[in-house]
């Protein structure tokens, strides 16, 4: 198995902050969607972001991946402020994500979807493509290797030549993860990857998330499903109305009075949904 997309985890960085949000706020008109949120995602951990609907979880993802600029506050990736980097530049830096509602390139094959991800670090332009320069050939070969490897990892190798839209729902979810992993991220952000999954599929997903972490990636997870979050996370941050109300290990968070109030007090049906 090629280990191309695996990022080596240097021992010195173990446990240090890979991504840190420092007092990040974002305002949409009158709505303060994120209100002074700070947290650190440490190298090599599985970190979850939970909270009731509308708590600002996806907004958090969008700020981290450059979709929105924070109104105030600072986001650092590996110590470096993201600044006003473009979205594709942030991906190249090493943050990749999946989407809450699947957003694959439906009319491209599964393999091509993953190749687009692998292309994130490629430089081939028109001239390279037209004249089939060594760069084009090298990058095509590398991209294909990366893509095949990631697809094998996610059990999609047999579906490589299917159109993305022809895949089953579960396969599409995994293909999104494959595409994101092909960009060789250090931080993989999964936005509700278990949405629409049955318990058996959720168990598989939990296993998958751990295996992703074991490949050297840091995982940031947004999820509604409490059993999944509690089962897989190293640490959890809870958001409510754009504010951080708790942070800690799953056990700590589960017993936190503020969290219980937020969940049980307002939305008891939360767990079973979506």
């Amino acid at each position: 198995m090629s280990d191309a997309p695996v990022v080596e985890r240097p021992a010195a960085h173990e446990g240090s902050a890979l991504l840190s949000l420092d007092d990040v706020s974002i305002r949409f008109g009158g709505l303060l969607a994120l209100d002074g949120v700070s947290f650190d995602v440490r190298q090599g951990e599985i970190f979850s972001l939970i909270g009731p609907n509308g708590a600002g979880k996806t907004t958090c993802f969008n700020v981290m991946t450059g979709v929105y600029q924070p109104t105030s506050g600072l986001i650092r990736f590996d110590g470096e402020p993201l600044g006003d980097r473009k979205r594709f530049a942030i991906t190249r830096l090493g943050i990749a994500r999946t989407f809450q509602n699947i957003r694959l390139f439906g009319n491209m094959t599964a393999l091509e979807n993953v190749l687009v991800g692998a292309d994130a670090h490629h430089r081939t332009g028109v001239v390279d493509a037209l004249f089939r320069t060594p760069r084009h050939r090298r990058e095509e070969r590398e991209g294909e290797e990366t893509a095949r490897d990631v697809m094998r990892f996610l059990g999609l190798e047999r579906r490589a030549n299917e159109l993305a839209r022809n895949l089953s729902y579960g396969e599409q979810r995994r293909l999104e993860i494959a595409r994101a992993m092909a960009t060789r991220p250090r931080l993989l952000c999964l936005d509700e990857p278990a949405a629409g999954f049955n318990p058996a599929e959720k168990a598989q997903l939990m296993d998958l998330i751990r295996r992703i972490r074991d490949r050297g990636l840091t995982v940031l997870l947004i999820e509604h499903d409490m059993s999944l979050v509690m089962g897989v996370s190293d640490r959890v941050t809870v958001l409510e109305f754009g504010r951080k109300i708790a942070e800690g290990t799953p056990t700590e968070v589960r017993n936190d009075p503020a969290v219980i109030a937020a969940y049980l007090g307002t939305e008891t049906a939360e767990e079973g949904e979506s």
Partner: peptide
């Protein structure tokens, strides 16, 4: 297919 998704996958 999806301009925003493409951008977030590293396509300028």
């Amino acid at each position: 297919e999806d301009e925003d998704a493409a951008e977030l996958m590293g396509v300028p």
